[in-house]
Design a protein around this nucleic acid. Sequence first.
DNA 1: TCAAAAGTGTTCATGATACACCCATGT
DNA 2: ACATGGGTGTATCATGAACACTTTTGA
Lengths: 224, 224
Amino acid sequence: MSAVKKTYAHAVIATDVVIFTVEHGVLKVLLIAMKKHPHEKHWALPGGLARGEEGLEDTANRHLFDKTGVRDVYLEQLATFGDPKRDPFGRVVSVAYMALLPSPVLRLKTTKEYAGVAWFPIAKVPSLAYDHKKILQFACERLAGKLSYTNIAYGLLPKEFTLSELQSTYEIVLGHRLDKRNFRKKLLVLDLVKSTKKYRRKGAHRPAELYRFTRHTPMVVEVL
Amino acid sequence: MSAVKKTYAHAVIATDVVIFTVEHGVLKVLLIAMKKHPHEKHWALPGGLARGEEGLEDTANRHLFDKTGVRDVYLEQLATFGDPKRDPFGRVVSVAYMALLPSPVLRLKTTKEYAGVAWFPIAKVPSLAYDHKKILQFACERLAGKLSYTNIAYGLLPKEFTLSELQSTYEIVLGHRLDKRNFRKKLLVLDLVKSTKKYRRKGAHRPAELYRFTRHTPMVVEVL
DNA sequence: TCAAAAGTGTTCATGATACACCCATGT
DNA sequence: ACATGGGTGTATCATGAACACTTTTGA
């Protein structure tokens, strides 16, 4: 690439991953505590530089795996943030991804690069390094939007779940309540979920039937 | 950036811009004819490297301006393509944008870097360099999708236009016919367009009333 | 027997679709 | 006078929204 003119500075490519999960009735996002100057003690989205021969999605998956140990979860490119001043060290262009986890990973792995890893309820996210607040904001909007017109909710739920759990997930992400009967009717008539004939008993009430998503591949369907 | 490890290769950032317009009943895209090895005589999307202190959108706008001479048109980031092998010269990460022009620019400017610039009907696009076919495909889907649930059609039409022209634009992009009465009713009840009380006479038939978009800022509205 | 969540249908309002004729003009 | 595209309203159908009670269990 020696032919590139001097005005065309090489940049560093990074990915940042917004990892969502739903737990205890709240939407949570995974953040890492930074160690390096000038962001000591600041929280940030997990992510980092892309390696030479690695695709962008591979980079996102690698950072996802490094922090959570999970693979093969829903992962989607969001947008690319390239403001020349977004990183004080130099030009870093960040390709943002969004990942969905069925349940929060309990054994989060911190690495020597970071001071810690933790889940934060969306409503309690502290101030973030770089432009990560903007990226998170973008991710939240995308998630809520896509839940309404796709089936990607499968990424947030375990293989088997009750319809109440599914409805709760929707309500938490969308931020408003839904009608139980209409919700169930819609998902069944769209053939997004199917019964497993199994039941889960939990607590002093009637057992709930367990369902599965009929497909675990993204598709656009008018859900709500 | 000397602290960056060797495995984290610096990459080159580029933008590629898919510039759409509608003319004579067909959707067209602007392509440039390449001169440089190994793509002599190949067509490609306009675009190129980002400069050091330039935002990504600025880069897209600059390339757009260089080829067409227009500014301040609808421009939207599509996605980022970063396959390590997408450019034989080395790692080039391309941030793809989509631009909409109200009418084809007549005086296209070629530069010494390129052998030519031309509009191609979507159905007659030749084979393209790099992964530009994939980018173009992505752009086409995005455009059709967004026309259905936003008002961005304003980017494809002049300030004043007839409802027939607007409907025709929708039909061309979406690839199917629409009902005239329902279409007009919908756009008016959504308050997307308003009459100018002016009329355009053209041909042996009743003159058509001219309309304007009430807003020239993107907004999501269920159009169709 | 009580509390707590699961499960289940119908009515009504709204929006989408289908459809055909008259109007103003240029030649 | 005729050919051409511009302009207009209604009836029907499908979909979304609102709404309350019975069931099963554990304590």
